[in-house]
């Protein structure tokens, strides 16, 4: 029982993801973002989170998933990561689930390489798989290549 961990789940392109609940500061509704010209595409913009300027990253782009349909309003997961407080944009927020260590498995080979680099593994839940997001990786912007591309 000691190995039980709590995850906050969310959906991205019909996939279920989970982030350890301690890493989530809060979940807030989408608000207008300030776009940042010249920033890498993953950066959706800047958000005013009660006086703090927080960068918002589009998780779909980060995971190289298809773009979100324009009629869907994202939700903001505010996470604390190695790169500071970051807001991750996801499609929809799910339940908080408790999982046992035993249901964990490393990422399946069949996932896209990009997806595999950002998730730690999967938990086999009762009905479906939950991808465990590596928040530090997810909040990292692969700057080198992208910025050069922009500069060029």
């Amino acid at each position: 029982m000691t190995s039980a961990r709590q995850f906050c789940t969310f959906y991205l392109d019909h996939l279920l993801f989970g982030v350890e609940s301690q890493k989530i500061q809060e979940v807030v509704t989408y608000r207008e973002l300030r776009p940042v010209p010249l920033a890498p595409p993953v950066v959706s913009g800047l958000m005013n989170l009660r006086g703090q300027v927080v960068v918002a990253l589009e998780l779909r782009r980060q995971l190289e998933l298809p773009e979100r349909p324009s009629d869907m309003t994202p939700i903001c997961l505010v996470v604390r990561s190695a790169s500071g407080t970051v807001c991750l944009l996801a499609d929809e927020v799910g339940n908080v689930v408790d999982v046992e260590e035993e249901t964990f498995e490393p990422s399946p080979e069949t996932l896209s390489p990009r997806l595999r680099s950002v998730i730690l593994g999967v938990h086999k839940l009762e009905h479906r798989l939950m991808h465990v997001l590596d928040t530090d990786q997810a909040c990292e912007v692969r700057v080198a290549g992208q910025v050069e591309a922009v500069e060029a």
Partner: peptide, 11 residues
């Protein structure tokens, strides 16, 4: 002045 997150520091 609020500092920019490190994602944007190099712009």
């Amino acid at each position: 002045v609020k500092p920019l997150s490190k994602h944007l520091k190099n712009i």
